[in-house]
Amino acid sequence: MSTETAAAKRAPAVYGRGVTPYLYILPAFLVFVPFVIVPFLRAIQLSFFEWDGLNPREWVGFGNYRDAFTDPLVQTSFVNAFELVLFIGVMPVCIGLVLASLSASVRVPGDAAFRTMIFLPQVIAGVVIGVTWRWIVAPDGPLNETLRAVGLGRFAKTWLGDSTWALPTIGVIGAWATTGLCVALFHAAIQQIPQSLYEAAAVDGAGRIRSFFAVTLPSLRGPIAVALTLTVIGALRTFDLIFITTRGGPGTSTYVPGMLIYNRAFGTNVNVGSSAAIAILLSILVFGVALLIRRIGERRT
């Protein structure tokens, strides 16, 4: 960061005169403003109306927000999203930390190939991951058949059709899809830690576990904050996976804000205003999480 700002100060202003720079950025803003910024402002506006999407809309002030705070389905959705944060947000970061720090301290054959495999779900579309896991956890799918084969058949169940197990199952699927990102992030960051720090810790008599907590973890503060921001926001925004697996069911057990925004805007009993209000609440939550994690990441560095 410091080198970047230094470079910026040295940056020449050779072509910075007149309209030239504005001509270069014009095409970007021509697609960015009408298709990202304006619709976001329109979402804020729509959240103050009651509107079925067809007939004239009616100003209701903060009514949609008031309703959102008392609507049990909204509460369920956000509570479910928070539960997904534990799985998709926290679990991959922990697994990633352990894997990356282990594989940085000793070289094992095939470690690069293993990391590539672990990364693979990152590039696969959410709907494909959903279709894949719908098969894995199907009543006669590989997971249940394996449980039966090893004599644990009493644990076999219809994972996505059981209102107790559906949400944790989706959480595990999300964690499965996200772990590779954390491993790659931490693996890249660990390479940057000076070896001398580990040597100093070893001189002080620290073992592997002590030096993990004394050296690795503090040095990874920034990358952990980055990883948590991505995974927590990803968890709060879960949509594709749920749309293709449970659509929020059974009952409302896997309902999440994204599903609610979609259904209120395009399902039956359309209320665009309510949908927009929930979308704005989700946005505030996402911005808040991003700021909070950044604060924590910056402290003591």
Binding site: P39, F40, R42, I261, A276, A279, S283
Partner: peptide
């Protein structure tokens, strides 16, 4: 960082 869910409906 704007969540796209908030953009698509309008």
């Amino acid at each position: 960082i704007v969540p796209y869910e908030a953009v698509v409906v309008p």
